[in-house]
Structure formats: C-alpha cells, structure tokens
Design a protein around this nucleic acid. Structure first.
Lengths: 193, 193
DNA sequence: AGGCGCATGTAAGCCGTTACATGATTCC
DNA sequence: GGAATCATGTAACGGCTTACATGCGCCT
C-alpha cells in the first residue's frame, strides 16, 4: 500500500476537522482550501476510494439527494496519524508556478500603455483575492477558538493571515511597478516615434 | 495548428531575450525562470519541436559536444508577436498550490514543540529562496539597462523585486506565527498532561 | 579510471482537467 | 417548464516527472 498522494493528505486534512461527503469535500477544495490547494470532484472520488482501501478513511451511507447512495466519510485514527506523520517529515521546496510573474517577465516587449494595462490586470486579480481573504479572516478574529493552537480555527486564522499578507504585498508590488514604469519611461526614451 | 502551451510561452519568453540551445533553455528553466516557472529537459525538447512546427522558433545546427547535433534556437518574428499577443490577452486567475500552507493548515494537530519545528522548517525554505533572490537582484540594481522599460533587464529587475518582497513577507509571517503559537499556548492550556 | 558537465532525445506512468453520464429536489 | 443545487461516478486527454539511453571532453 503506497503512501497517500498530496491530494490524499489534503483530503485527510479536511476530514480530520470534520466528516464530509465527497461532494462537500469538493466544495471545500474550492473554498477555503482552494486558497492554497485545489481539486475537482473527479479527482476527489477516486482518491477517497484509495484512502479507504488504505484504512485511512471510512464511510457510512446516509442517503440524501442523488441517483447513487450518499456516503459520509470520516478520517480513521490511522488516517489522522498518517497526516500528523506527514506534517513533520521534511520536504524539499516545491516548484513554483506563477503565471502572472511569467507574463510580467516579458513586459519589456510591450509599449508603455500595454505594459501598464498588464500590470493593472495582474493587480486586479490579486486585489480580488485579497478582498476574499480579508472577508474570511474577519469572521475568525472574534472567534475565541481561533486563539487555541490545538483548535482547527487557530490554523485557519494563521494561514488566512498569511494569505492576506502575501496578497497585500503583491498589490503593493504591482503599484510600485506601475510607478517604476512611468518614472523610467520619463527618464529614458520618450515612447514610440 | 493549436496555440502554444504555457510552457511554449515560457520558452518563447526566454528565446525573445536571446537564442539558446535546448540544454541552455533547460538550465534557465531552473534558474532564473525557475523562480516562477519550471520545466525539465524532457519537456523542453518536444515543445521546441512543436514551436518550430508552428513557425514560432527556428534552429541552426552549431555542433558542439554531444552524441547528436547541437541546435541553437531563436524566436522568429511570428514567435515574438505570438508572445506579445498572449501577454495582453486577459486570463482567469490560476489555481494556487502551496504545499507549505497546506501543511500549516493542519498545525492544530501537533503539540507545541512539533508545531514550532514545522514553522521553523517552512521559514528556512523561504529564507533560503529570499537569499537567492537578493543575491540575483544585487547584480541588477547597478545595471543602467535595468532602468529602461523596453530592455529585458528591466523586467528581470522588477520581477525579482517581487520575489524578494513576497519571500520577505513569508519569512515575517512565519516569525509572527511562531510568536502567536507561544503567546496563545501560554494563555490557554499548559500543554499535554 | 571514474565522475561530472555538455547535449539531445524517448518511454512509462502519474496527476489533473475537461467532458460525459445520471437523477432527485427546489426555486423562479 | 427550465435552471440550479445536490450528489456520485467514469473516460479521454494533456502536462509533467522519472527513468532510460547515448556519447564526447575535461578534470582529478
């Protein structure tokens, strides 16, 4: 029996907090887990079956709405333990894939106007996410459970705080880039002839 | 002929700056492009063939060291234009995959000591990257070309600046998390009985 | 003599996305 | 009546990683 995939650990992380159906897990993989990890339902259902085969989750049939029986999954003690073990094993840094930066790395190919448009578009993407995170974080700051390091809400709060901080920096950075583009354009060549 | 994949645009971005062999492109996909996009050589060679079939790059044989002929690739005018067009088409936000945050989201499962170890490990990863970026950025700040928005070095400088800023925030965030863990532990339950 | 860097490619397999498929209930 | 939500699954395909394969020149 091979160890769970990264997706498997993501699902265990959700189920360690509370039991859920595959459908609910798929929804939470969009939000709030989607803030740092994503998966579609077509990935979730087979992975749940694999986790169950490994004894890390277990299901009971609860029969709700739908053509097939509805299954409510829960993490087993072995599942929570596997997750705990994974948390403390050291891992090498993951490859980064940042499409916005990839585009901005070629900003030198664009005229002043298009460049500013590209920067503004990237800013809008990050600003929207920032607003999401801030709204979500606001629901947690008053929660006394979010102050207990052994309560899931604590982890939710601190990871959200990280999301807010990093998105804020991206927005600031893109604002800085816009002024830098204008400052350097003014100093150098006066645009296309 | 389908439009290039994201990898195709990454390679075009490299070749728009200067011609290179597949091997050199693979190296640059580790560093400095690897700061925001990655690819192995086994992905690079077939993609170059596809780009060439689409008329976006072209190669000449230069014969260096190796069992097969060495090919030096360059972007064609059509290739640069395809890249330019892609830069200004709007795209939906990409899914995020952040393994460190995924792990930290389950930090509530750990005892105080293991939690601090996990946070410290994540901090070390980001701190190492930050040092890389800062070293690279230092080589650019004195370059007068990096002040010209139409010069590739300008784009290198501003994207690196973004990398430095975001990594710095991650390190600060993880330091904050460590103090938060200790502050909240002290206020609440006094650890395992 | 062995290992590393240069240099290019192919093959197997995993992971993830998109699309297909089914069917109940609730809201407009 | 039609769309959206609930709910679960399969199939085809593409992207990416890992491993296999080859072979020269340089350094120790």
């Amino acid at each position: 029996m091979p160890p769970p995939s990264l997706l498997g650990y993501a699902l265990l992380a959700l189920l360690a907090r509370r039991p859920a159906t595959g459908y609910e897990l798929s929804k939470r993989m969009r939000r709030p887990v989607g803030y740092f990890w994503t998966a579609r339902h077509s990935q979730v259902y087979p992975e749940l079956a694999r986790l169950e085969a490994g004894g890390l989750v277990r299901h009971e049939v609860v029969d709700g709405a739908g053509p097939r029986p509805t299954k409510r999954y829960a993490a087993t003690a072995a599942g929570v333990e596997a997750l705990r073990t994974w948390l403390v094993t050291d891992m090498e840094p993951q490859p980064v894939r940042d499409l916005e930066t990839l585009r901005l790395w070629s900003v030198w190919l664009l005229d002043a106007e298009s460049a500013l448009t590209l920067v503004a578009e990237c800013r809008a993407v990050h600003a929207e996410r920032l607003a999401d995170y801030e709204r979500e974080l606001a629901t947690l700051v008053d929660d006394p459970q979010a102050k207990d390091p052994r309560h899931p809400q604590f982890a939710s709060r601190v990871t959200l705080e990280g999301g807010v901080r990093s998105r804020r920096v991206f927005v600031d950075w893109l604002d800085w880039m816009a002024t830098e583009l204008q400052r350097c354009s003014a100093a150098g060549a006066p645009g296309p002839p």
